[in-house]
Design a protein around this nucleic acid. Structure first.
Lengths: 369, 369
DNA sequence: GGCACGCCTGAATCCAGCC
DNA sequence: AGGCTGGATTCAGGCGTGC
């Protein structure tokens, strides 16, 4: 049924297809049960209102594209069920689907999946190592996005490359929380010096998805192709793909990008990334009950004391004032020093002897590994 | 309206309430707009694997064809919307709600919240440091659960203890992914050697929730109280609570558990927000004679100057004009910036050295307490 | 050339209180 | 209720500049 727009260079016709046009209309050209995996990154319906400025008065370049605007949830749900229904039709019975979203839309995606008969296998968290902070201090840093992995039905024999994932993860089962940086630097596609697409996903994320849940030669469909991350990664990993994109500008960027991709199957075997030691906030020591609120800390010479508050901050009184804040800030304040490593400065009483609170951090670190 | 089952020991009547019975029925005894925060860990015995109850307590018969699978979700949705509607009624207009769930039910919870008019503030991931492995090797290790934090409406002035969270996290703002171990060891409640409740949550998780989004003395409601983790943590942190639990055995365990909790001393469970500090107009500084009219202020680099007027405004002259107004307005004008915190921008001469005028504000604030 | 420093930016539902 | 204003608010990483 697909007869054109194939990127035929370097592969068999139909191995690399980009279709330009409305997602549902072009999906209708794809044959029933012909696709092994679907990856869909639909509009998030962010509902952004006015501008947002950083504390340094620079403006945040938010997503204000028309394609992300929906009049209400009902409209968004209708849109979602429309394209998901077509996706279900083209998916092989043993196929699977991945969706990605944020709290704005992901709950609606999950419900639509369930209502249409898909069987959720996992939700997976993309933890961002470098998220944008919350500039006004009104919420938690929005530091993750959610992926949903679902098979076509409860009994489907979906593909899951368990051994490969475990081997590539220091022989530990791959967890449902994945850590990746945002897409930036060289990888981030530019057009006239500006980002070509506001929501380009990192290739590492797609690589994990495709390596985990497809075999070589599988057909991958992305109904919201954008600038073609799914296609680029699929080509590199020896998977076929169909990408559908409404915006010809995005599609043109994707074509150029994918042309340049040289498949490197050796990259399937990634060296495990050695991680730095995890940072342990002092709040955890209190939350976990290793030190209780009210406990008095002191410095090595026992000249200064501070009391632990229930929220993991310290309170100290000196001749020059009251000090409340983190172990570091209060440590600095009582010494009238510009900075202080609270973990090394503060001590607690253990069986009558002074012990650095850093011991407790080491304890928690050991537990986390 | 609540007239019994209060655990009156050690607190005022109504500070610690456990109600036994159906969640919706007992919620109806709670007054409108009387609760500051709701924490709900609802059951998700979906998908024909256990009992499912309608709001009227009748049991749903399991069926296994596709059509009724849909009706199964529909019944769960009906149940969810039933208790959430009551929760919404008892919640103060500036209150907030937390829900926790896994991929089986959390998407349905999120959609119900949005459809009922709640405003999602964050989804938060509880990353489990010691999750149960996936024994069959067919999926990713299910290593997290999802919490949703939502205010009653888009415009609600919800409580968020930003400063405390940041201070307890080594001065970095708290992210949406939280790492905690499962509830086990001493903390895990046992009954005849077996765990008393299958899904007991760690107290550390509840402590983070309550410290982040309630003030001392706030009323917390948990409509699925179980063995009372919410109550135990609330009591320890100086919050009041109402817990509703249908199972008398669980409720009995909860009562015993909470009786044994010794609250932290009051001074330990406060988390002052910088935003709550009293506002000091610059005019007071002049009125009190801390700076006299005619004094010249300057910025940190001593590149810009401004003269204090008798009315507490500033006057400055630049190449682009004359500026008169508040310390903030003039600070912004001389920098050609959209906004400026004059307290931090302007300095005065103290013994030959530049000192921020904010010092004088701190002085006046100290006097007020 | 190397390092230190500063600028730029990323799927963002981002203010509160008083008149 | 809407408008005005005081004043509170950011983390990690890539990259360019300048010494």
């Amino acid at each position: 049924m697909i007869h054109n727009e194939s990127m035929s260079k370097g592969g068999n016709s139909g191995d690399e297809t980009i279709l330009v046009g409305d997602c549902i209309a072009r999906l209708q050209e794809v044959a029933d049960k012909s696709v092994d995996l679907i990856f869909a990154d639909p509009p998030y319906n962010l509902q952004l209102k006015g501008d947002l400025f950083r504390p340094d008065d620079s403006r945040v370049d938010g997503v204000d594209n028309d394609w992300d605007k929906f009049s209400d949830f009902a409209t968004y749900d209708q849109f979602t069920r429309g394209w998901l229904t077509e996706c279900r039709r083209v998916l092989k019975d043993d196929g699977a689907i991945w969706l990605i979203g944020s709290y704005h839309n992901v709950f609606r995606l999950g419900v639509a999946l369930q209502d249409l008969g898909f069987w959720i296998l996992n939700d997976v968290i993309w933890r961002k190592s470098n998220p944008m902070p919350n500039f006004r201090g009104r919420r938690f840093t929005n530091a993750h996005e959610t992926l949903i992995w679902a098979s076509k039905s409860e009994t489907a024999k979906y593909c899951f490359n368990y051994d490969m994932l475990k081997a590539s993860n220091d022989d530990i089962q791959m967890r449902s929380d994945w850590l990746f940086p945002l897409c930036g630097g060289e990888e981030r596609l530019k057009l006239n010096g500006k980002k070509a697409h506001p929501t380009q996903k990192p290739e590492a994320l797609l690589a994990r998805v495709l390596q985990a849940t497809t075999k070589q030669g599988d057909m991958v469909l992305d109904p919201f192709f954008g600038t073609g991350t799914t296609g680029a990664v699929a080509k590199r990993l020896g998977r076929k793909f169909i990408g559908i994109e409404r915006d010809e500008t995005y599609a043109a960027v994707a074509r150029r990008r994918i042309e340049a991709v040289v498949p490197f199957e050796e990259r399937l075997t990634k060296s495990p990334n050695k991680r730095d030691e995890p940072r342990i906030p002092f709040g955890w020591v209190v939350e976990r009950g290793l030190l209780s609120p009210g406990t008095v800390l002191f410095d090595a010479q026992r000249r200064v004391t501070a009391e632990i508050q229930a929220d993991g901050t310290l309170q100290a009184t000196t001749l020059w004032g009251e000090h409340r804040g983190s172990i570091h800030k209060v440590g600095a304040a009582v010494q009238q020093a510009p900075a202080c490593n609270g973990w090394l400065y503060w001590h607690f009483d253990r069986d009558g002897r002074a012990a650095q609170i850093d011991l407790l951090r080491q304890h928690l670190r050991a537990e986390l590994t």
